[in-house]
């Protein structure tokens, strides 16, 4: 028996959730977003260029680990705060936000590397794909973007650098 049939709630007490209005608001937002981005000069495409026209190549976790053993330079494209918490041992930090400051500093190391493997967190491939695209545009030949993130790397038991934090007993 429903609550309505039992008399616990009466027809008058049922809340009026305006589903139709909610749906119209969402559809109107989507329509405005599409129109604006299609016709305004600052509009963005449906997908970013580093996804629709990637210059980088994807690489599996296993292959990336082999490249690590062969001396490839790993680039951590995540936020500097996340990099400080943990990163692949030997990786350098080059995030999109601080790219213009960090790139000139890292350029000699990047140029010395035969292969470059960029990684992010894995779920979205951001910001690894963006940095991968940027490095290819700068003329670096072998730029790979790791398909897995740091969590998978950690789970597979590959080398990590995780500075101990205050209060961390482990």
């Amino acid at each position: 028996m429903t609550l309505l049939a039992k008399g616990v709630i009466t027809p008058q007490r049922r809340s009026h959730i305006p589903w139709a209005a909610c749906l119209i608001i969402l559809l109107a937002s989507a329509a405005c977003a599409w129109l604006f981005n299609a016709f305004m000069p600052q509009g963005i495409g449906l997908t970013p260029a580093h996804v629709s026209h990637p210059l980088w190549q994807g690489v599996s976790l296993e292959r990336a680990a082999r490249m690590y053993g062969q001396g490839a330079l790993f680039v951590d494209a995540r936020d500097p705060g996340q990099y400080k918490r943990s990163h692949i041992r030997g990786a350098v930090n080059l995030s999109p936000v601080e790219r213009e400051y960090l790139y000139p500093l890292l350029k000699p190391s990047l140029e010395a590397a035969k292969r470059i493997v960029v990684y992010g967190k894995g779920v979205s491939r951001f910001p690894a794909a963006e940095i991968g695209q940027f490095l290819r545009q700068q003329g670096f030949g072998e730029v790979w973007v790791m398909e897995a993130g740091l969590d998978e790397w950690r789970a597979a038991g590959h080398p990590l650098r995780e500075p101990k934090r205050p209060g961390n007993s482990s």
Binding site: I25, L26, S29, A30, C32, A33, W34, F36, N37, Q42, G43, I44, G45, L46, T47, P48, H50, V51, D79, P96, V97, G120, K121, V123, S124, R125, F126, P127, A129, E130
Partner: peptide
């Protein structure tokens, strides 16, 4: 400035990259 907001949304890494632009544009207009 939809590009800047798309970048901000991408930072969270909650949606795959191919969804970043469309979801951020709809959210801004919403």
């Amino acid at each position: 400035q939809p590009a800047a907001f798309a970048q901000a949304v991408a930072e969270y890494e909650l949606v795959p990259l191919w969804l970043v632009n469309s979801s951020s544009a709809v959210m801004a207009w919403l």
